[in-house]
Design a protein around this nucleic acid. Sequence first.
DNA 1: TGACAAGGTCACGTTAGGGAACTAACCTGG
DNA 2: CCAGGTTAGTTCCCTAACGTGACCTTGTCA
Lengths: 137, 137
Amino acid sequence: MTTSRPGGRDQRPGERGDLLDPRCPTRQLLDRIGTKWTSMAVKVLAEEAPGELRFAELRRRIPGISQKMLSATLQSLVRDGLVARRVEPTVPPAVHYRLTELGLSLERPLSALRVWAETHMPEIERHNQLADESLPN
Amino acid sequence: MTTSRPGGRDQRPGERGDLLDPRCPTRQLLDRIGTKWTSMAVKVLAEEAPGELRFAELRRRIPGISQKMLSATLQSLVRDGLVARRVEPTVPPAVHYRLTELGLSLERPLSALRVWAETHMPEIERHNQLADESLPN
DNA sequence: TGACAAGGTCACGTTAGGGAACTAACCTGG
DNA sequence: CCAGGTTAGTTCCCTAACGTGACCTTGTCA
């Protein structure tokens, strides 16, 4: 991914920010779902939809993710309006996450991608192995 | 992108590498199409399918890409079996690229994603602006 | 005195991507 | 005969960012 996001401040107008890329929306989308954990988080939340999941439960369902990354991923998703965050002012506060309608609508094409990945990735790996076998040195 | 690819060695075996991430095929796919120029290259090649495009022509149709990046992107795609490369031994050599059937099959879910991006990215940007307006400092 | 919830912060390593210069082989023009 | 151009790449160097791991925080319950 190239375009900076979380801390914002891209496209500063003073600099000769060349804006070469004409804001291709597909690029922007891939910059989001292409980050390591985003698509997995969306999937896990989609499985629970329209229900909610709490932070710790999400962590449990996404093996290998750290608190920091889960937190950052969720913040991105909330910021993009794909996920809604609801805080119950109990103590300790309980935070609930769920997909918004927008997030659910993304889940559709995303799951199509997942299906493609599951059926065709083995073939891609085969190709890679072939490429490795010839001229590995 | 996180998972290293060319030289591979993840999953150190000494650790109880329980394959935390079970090589989620979706992530592997996103590691590929998530790179900056890949999806654009696939799209351009798909528009021409089943015809071929030469290096320089691809470069012309992907504004902003450098030779280096185009070359690297195409190599990845060829290695994955998504693109076929044909060299005419003329001089200077003419190299032709086209999507394989596998590549074409990927184009389908990918274009669905593109459609989603084009229709919904404005909404995502709206959400981001809202988030920026509140508590910007 | 811990443990839990939901994070935040710091310090660090790796890598993707950009830019510019260089290569190969041959052809053409002067 | 030699400079210069073409195509399709490489090679080196540099940076911004992504992701990780370890530790800190605030408040309450057992």
